[in-house]
Every structure is written in C-alpha cells, then in structure tokens.
Amino acid sequence: MRIDFSPVLSRLDYLLEGLAVTVLVAVAAIFLSFALGLLLAICRISRTRGLRIFASVYIDVFRNTPFIVQLFFLYYGLPEIGIPTDPMPTGILALSLACAAGNAEIIRAGIETVSKGIVDAGRSFGMSGYQIYRYLILPNALRIAWRPLGNAFVNLVLTTSVLSTITVNDLAGNAANVSAETFKPFEVYLTVLVTYCAVTFTVSGIVNSIYALLFSRVAERPVMRGHA
C-alpha cells in the first residue's frame, strides 16, 4: 500500500469547511458552558436551598450520563414532544449543557479556596454580599479555576467531534465522508488528528496568554525586587 495524500488535498476545501464548523461550535460552546457553569457554581453554594438542590441534581445528572446519549436524547427526543431540532444549534446546546456541569465543579472548587480573610476584609468595610462576590470572590476564584477550565475547554474541543453523529458537518464528520469517498482513511484521519492537535494547542495557548495577561503578577510568589 502506498501512502498518498493527494486525495486529501483534493478535498481540502471540504475539510476546511468542517474545521470552520468545529471552531464555531467549540467557541460558542466554550462561552456558553462557561457562563452556565458560573451560574451553576453560584447556585451550588447559594444560601437558597432550592437553588442548591437544583444545581447539584443538574451537575450529577450531566456528569453521570454519557454525552452521546444526552445528545441523542435532545436531538431525537425533543421533536417527539413537539420541539423541533436542528443539528448545529442542538449540538452546541448539548455540548454547553454537558460541559457546564464540569465547569461548575471547577469554579465551585475555585470559590471554595478563596481565603476567608479577604471576605472578612470586604465585609468589615461594609461591602454588600453582591459586591464581595463580584469584586473579591469571583476574580480570585476564576484565577484559581483558570487552568483547570483551560483543560476543560480542550476536552470540549475534542468532544465536538461527537456532534458528527447527529449530522453536524464538522471536521470529524467531513473527514468520515472524505475517507469513505477516497478509501484513504490513514491519510485522511492522520491529517485530521494533526488538525485537532493544532486547534487544541491554539486553545491552550489562548488560555495561557489570558492567564499571563491577567494574573501573572497576582499569584503568590517570591517578591521581585527592583521592578516598579
């Protein structure tokens, strides 16, 4: 058997279209799952019992069921009760809902490690509960949660490939089509693996840059002398 990438190159446009869909879906789901995860984390440790219970049940349900089943449930199940579904929006929704559960746990852990001392300080100066959350707890919790969240975002990118099972034309989906047309699975999937790698490296890079930009001088570390 001869290794031959020319069929891959001839279908490059189609594969790039898939890549664009993957990136779009990933970016949308990263933002949505982050916002939803933040809300869930706050509910999870809220003083209101109802919110606490809602958040724990949500998190437990989503973390203890397979993503592909959640996806099929939404995509094939909802139309049955009269809610029409479309592959891409449903895919983004399913991915966001599922990843929000994991993000919520990461952010909650971050919130719980924020020192009681700074909360005391905020309270002692008469800051309201909302102000303490907004200006003291969340910025520090997100700094602590940022790297684990970055790992979660990378996982999310990889999980977008599952959406091809509900006919989303993402990179994995289009790759399967090209592979079937060209009978060159080795070349096709090798190309696609490298591409996924490039995407996740980019995501990690962005996550790390944001950390460096926002938090590099904040973390506890040896005192640096002579830089103003």
């Binding site: 300080a121 905020g122 002692s124 100066f125 200006y135 506890e220």
Partner: peptide, 26 residues
C-alpha cells in the same frame, strides 16, 4: 462598618488588586 475600620493580623489584602486598588475598592 463604615465607622469602624479593621486592620488585620494577616493583612487580608485582596491579592488580585494593586496597592492602589486595595485602598480604593471600598
């Protein structure tokens, strides 16, 4: 709380804000 201000044994400064930010927040 506005009339009584605390200085803490362990400083309890806000780590994510500069000295200026710490002082001006409240």
């Amino acid at each position: 709380q506005k009339r009584t201000s605390m200085v803490f044994q362990h400083f309890n400064l806000y780590p994510h804000l500069t000295a200026l930010g710490n002082i001006t927040l409240a």
